[in-house]
């Protein structure tokens, strides 16, 4: 029996997207009553970490970069069973793109002790890039495996796992430490337990600011980002055509005529 795994999970707090609506009149996201939740894909990352700890022992640390309110996401993760939460928060981190986010997360992970495996979600529902994990791997100089669908085993400082690509499933072996991003196939995330909720309430969440990191602020947040948003807008609807009513026969005829007209049949 080894000493167990040091597992780090990166989670982000996002608005509950199913409810985010864009108000076409005012051009604003409707935020009234929209809850901030753990990025749904990151719950699968948490589940993966907890299962690894159940099998191999060790500790599961969750880390989140965001405004002070993101502390709640960390407590929610502890309620699911994670051991410790770290908040990475500083005004100079604001406006970060995936480059600056992954750099900041990589530095904070290095600051907060040794790790064997870092687990990210497939992507976030707001930024929606899936780039943070692989970019972090470059900052840390570690291998990265995206789209992990199943972890097979961890043995002799090596992990075996499956990942699904567009045209099939690969079984891979990689040395620790490494970074993985996991898909929904890893298994349904568990719910918070009562004991977990109590632990979450009592947990001390440590905060890392740039004082601890000591980075040049020019490398962080918006200043440290290579990409810049210049415009946001509502998607253009596809130009519509005719809307027709009638008996089922008339409708079928009209569709049939359209298929002919457009040379589809």
């Amino acid at each position: 029996m080894s000493v167990g795994l040091n597992i780090v999970i990166c989670i982000k707090q996002v608005p509950e997207t199913t409810e985010v609506e864009f108000d076409k009149e005012t051009g604003r996201l409707k935020r009234e009553g929209v809850a901030a939740v753990i990025n749904p894909f990151d719950e699968y990352a948490i589940e993966t970490g907890l299962r690894l700890r159940e099998k191999h022992g060790g500790r599961v640390k969750v880390i989140s970069m965001g405004p002070p309110a993101a502390e709640q996401a960390l407590r929610d993760a502890i309620a699911m069973g994670c051991d410790e939460g770290i908040l990475v928060s500083d005004r100079v981190f604001g406006g970060a793109d995936t480059w600056a986010t992954s750099l900041t997360l990589a530095k904070s992970i290095q600051l907060s002790g040794a790790h064997d495996i870092i687990i990210c979600g497939l992507k976030t529902t707001d930024g929606d890039t899936g780039q943070t994990g692989p970019e972090m791997a470059e900052h840390l100089g570690e291998p990265c495996i995206s789209y992990v669908s199943q972890i097979i085993d961890v043995k002799d400082r090596k992990i075996t796992l499956k990942r699904s690509l567009d045209d099939g499933v690969e079984t891979l072996e990689a040395p620790l430490p490494l970074i993985i991003t996991v898909s929904k196939d890893v298994g349904q995330p568990r719910l918070a337990t009562l004991r977990g909720r109590l632990a979450a309430k009592k947990a001390v969440i440590n905060t890392i600011t740039n004082k601890e990191m000591g980075m040049n602020p020019k490398e962080l947040g918006l200043d440290g980002s290579y990409t810049r948003v210049t415009k946001i807008f509502t998607p253009e609807p596809h130009a519509g055509g005719e809307v027709i009513e009638g008996t089922p026969d008339q409708l079928a005829d009209a569709i049939y005529a359209k298929l002919k007209e457009t040379k589809i049949i």
């Binding site: 609807p237 596809h238 130009a239 519509g240 055509g241 005719e242 809307v243 027709i244 009513e245 009638g246 089922p248 026969d249 409708l251 079928a252 005829d253 009209a254 569709i255 049939y256 359209k258 298929l259 457009t262 049949i265």
Partner: peptide, 28 residues
């Protein structure tokens, strides 16, 4: 007819799919 799909369709037929589709299959 108010469904968003109708606004973006080249042709939107307002009706019950269970009545329209079988007839369409027959015609084809």
């Amino acid at each position: 007819r108010e469904a968003p799909i109708c606004r973006i369709s080249t042709l939107a037929a307002v009706g019950d799919l269970y009545e329209v589709v079988p007839r369409l299959i027959e015609k084809i």
